[in-house]
Structure formats: C-alpha cells, structure tokens
Amino acid sequence: MSIRLDHVTYTYSPGTAYEMHALKDVSLELPDGHFIGIIGHTGSGKSTLIQHLNGLMRPTSGHVYFNDEDIWGEKYDRRNLRFHVGLVFQYPEYQLFETDVITDVCFGPKNQGLSEEDRMKRAEEALRQVGVDESLFRKSPFELSGGQKRRVAIAGVLAMNPDVLVLDEPTAGLDPMGRDEILGTVAGLQKQRGITVVLVSHSMEDVAEYVDQLIVMNHGEKAFDAPPREVFSHYKELEKMGLAAPQMTYIMHALKERGLDVDVHATTIEEAEESILHALGRK
C-alpha cells in the first residue's frame, strides 16, 4: 500500500504573472504502517504536496505511484484511490454540511456504496475512536464546539476505512489541550488500526513525539527525509528554514557543551530526563 512520488513538480498558474513553483522535483516514499511527519514553514508547499497523494492535484511533471501503479495512468480509478488514501484538509470543520453529526460522517461510506447498516456501523466506530460522545451523534454539526467539529470531520474521513490517513495541520487554531488530545487520538489510531499516518505540521513539538519518519519541506523542495532524531541534529539548518528543533534538543546540546555527557538525540522530556539522570550517575 505504499505511496511513492517520483520527481514531482507542481506550478500554480503556469505562464502567467502569478506563476508559482510550489513543488520542485520532490521524490519520496511513504512506506506502509509508518507514522510520517511533514513539516515546513508556511508556504513551503506542504498542502500542495499532500494533495498529490490522493490524486486531487495532478503533477505538472513527474509521477505518483500507489502500490506501484501510476495514479495518472489512463484507466486508473482515482475516486477509488481516495477511499484508500483518506485526506483531512486544514480546518476540516468547514466542510460539514449535513443536518446531524452521524449523517455527515456517513457521507464518505455512502459514496463508497455501503449499505445503510454498514455505513452506520462505520460512522459510529469512527466517531467513538476520535472521542466524540454518543450524545452528540444526532446534534447538528454547527452546534458543536470547534474542537468537536474537527473531530467529527476527521471521523468523516476515518469512516471510509482508509489504509493511509493524511492530516493537514490538524491542530491549527486549537488550544494546547485540544492539540494534545487530537495528536494523542491520531497516534492511538495509528497503533490501533495499523494504518499509515501522514501528519502535516509547522511545529516540531507536534511531531517530535510521534513520528518514525520526518520530511522537511523548504520553499517547495524536500530538505530532509530521515528519522526525527537525525533531522533534529541539523537544528542549525532548520533554524535557517524558519523552523526550530524541539526545545529538548537545544537543552541537551547546551548541556553537552558544558561537559555533561548526555544523549543529544533525546527529544521528549522523558528521554531527556532519563539521559540527564544517567549522566549525573543517579541511575
């Protein structure tokens, strides 16, 4: 079920005064069952990139492969592809339209051609997994709070049972608690369902904790593509791209410089704590 991009270039409004090269020769592979982070400053091409993953955008040049099949091949069924690669847009709550929550979540499964009964089962399961309480199922989506709306919208994609779940800045505009809840939910989903998750973010803190692979975008180009600890060790280059490594990276590097033998690759507070205690000989 892997997705592969092969020298993909995308240009907005080609041949006009507003020409914009949003993606420049991007090649990458998203292997099965991984948790992958895509990170980059605003306007670096993250949203453009992920819309290539389910065939919503067609590369100006280059190819996109799903299971080694070119998705822009002549007879390829891209609508079916979208059920396998579920894409949650930024601010997905703006796409809700039905009269009640559960009917809205059923929209995807209905388009898949499932029976009424199966749709409901899928929708209920998805809503439960993203933590929407049963008492809200029959409410109008427009009555919910921002965080709840976002969960419903994510459930709307999840209910299609995709093999790959792509989320574009799912934490944008949420308070710290809402942010942690959504990220925790997504990480839980990835483990529970064993699906591939692609998480787009512009905050290192968001992704540091969860991802196995980190892709860094900079002005439409892929700058890094490696496990997070390896990427964070380039924290000086990241800063030049308007990004920052997680705070722990800075602290650990500072400690190391002052002579404490700590592991500079620690990114989470827990790892840092352990490494510092170890270095101090308390463990």
């Binding site: 819309q51 389910n54 919503l56 609508r79 979208r82 059920f83 579920g86 894409l87 949650v88 847009f89 997905p92 703006y94 796409q95 339209f97 929209f107 995807g108 388009n111 898949q112 709307g156 994609v157 299609m160």
Partner: peptide, 26 residues
C-alpha cells in the same frame, strides 16, 4: 470545499441533471 468533499468520494461529474444538482449540496 469541493476538494474536501472529493476526498470523501463525492462525485460531481457523473449522473443526470437532478443527481448533479443534488451533488452540489455538500
């Protein structure tokens, strides 16, 4: 919005006139 609904499998291209008008609701 159109793309977001297409990502959920919405189909705006096929069907007769009534189906297409209905497809605009989302």
């Amino acid at each position: 919005i159109k793309k977001a609904q297409m990502a959920r499998g919405a189909d705006f291209e096929s069907g007769n006139v009534i189906q297409r008008v209905k497809a605009m609701v989302p």
